[in-house]
Design a protein around this nucleic acid. Structure first.
Lengths: 164, 164
DNA sequence: TATTGTTATACTCTATAACTATA
DNA sequence: TATAGTTATAGAGTATAACAATA
């Protein structure tokens, strides 16, 4: 349920030591011409750094995403979270149950739909989420430290034009 | 082993229909300020498109990555592939065995290290990989179709400065 | 003593089917 | 009849430990 620290799962950097030839780097230039490859490697790099913050609180990236969405959208339903974050309903049940068990949620009856639950953060949940958002925002300088503020804005704009 | 078509796994777009309020979009602006979030969404979008090509050949992204690296780096060892692509050795064994079973590989004794195996593509493997590279390269215009050639170059450069 | 490739296996993540209660 | 939330479970992806052969 909660995330432990783990090694970066894929596409790590490619400096290779061979027995006789010394350091050697494989040619991955074709892969580097693909948006998917570069975006994935950048995402893994960024998320690995962000995870240091989350793991210290026994949270995964997706847990933080849920907390952040709830902080800014009180009363959201489980279904809305599923669609916004691409999590399937049965898996969201488990995720929300874990956050609830830790006292981070406040589940209220939905004002107009008796089938649904209006999700809110508890006071503790809101406090933690604000703290995590601050910490993650501060980490952005490490994540993209070699980019200027303007380059970062350009990067975000280009990425959003790819996926939106 | 081989990948089937499957739904996009995470961070899908966020247009929500609620019972009474009509279409509604959750505020995800904080998440959108993070490189990790934007890069991940862009990567998932791009990879979902690329997967259409791979799935038609019963291949996953990681399978294609291995084939492409081997095409451009004949004689690479399993260990080198693991480090370049972030796959753990036990899992690379399974992956390579599947490619081998399909006649795409040519495993030769390593010229200088008796423990290692020099991996090459078979003629069929090289043919398939060249075909896949062409198809994927052609798909880039759909992946990032709203970006000009120069914007695409900018995007690649910025992403590589994040993860390199 | 260290490393390559391997087996076996555990754990996590993601997905499908089916049920309930409300709409 | 359709949808929100849920349960149970299957399947894919990722991880660790340990071993044989070779360096």
């Amino acid at each position: 349920m909660a995330a432990r620290a783990r090694r970066e799962p894929a596409l790590a950097s490619a400096v290779i030591e061979t027995a006789d030839n010394g350091p050697e780097r494989l040619d991955t230039s074709f892969l580097e011409s693909l948006v998917g490859y570069n975006a994935r490697r950048a995402a893994l790099h960024a998320i690995a750094i962000d995870m240091e913050v989350f793991a210290a609180h026994q949270l995964r990236v997706v847990d933080f995403s849920v907390l952040s969405v709830l902080l800014h959208n009180p009363g959201t339903t489980s279904r809305q979270l599923c669609q916004a974050l691409g999590v399937l309903p049965p898996n969201m049940v488990t995720l929300l149950a874990a956050l609830d068990r830790r006292g981070l949620l406040d589940r209220r009856p939905h004002p107009t739909d008796g089938r649904a639950v209006a999700l809110h953060l508890s006071a503790a949940g809101a406090r933690l989420t604000r703290q995590l958002e601050k910490a993650v925002a501060a980490l952005e300088s490490r994540v993209a430290g070699r980019l200027s503020a303007e380059e970062r804005r350009t990067l975000h704009a280009l990425l959003q034009r790819v996926y939106l």
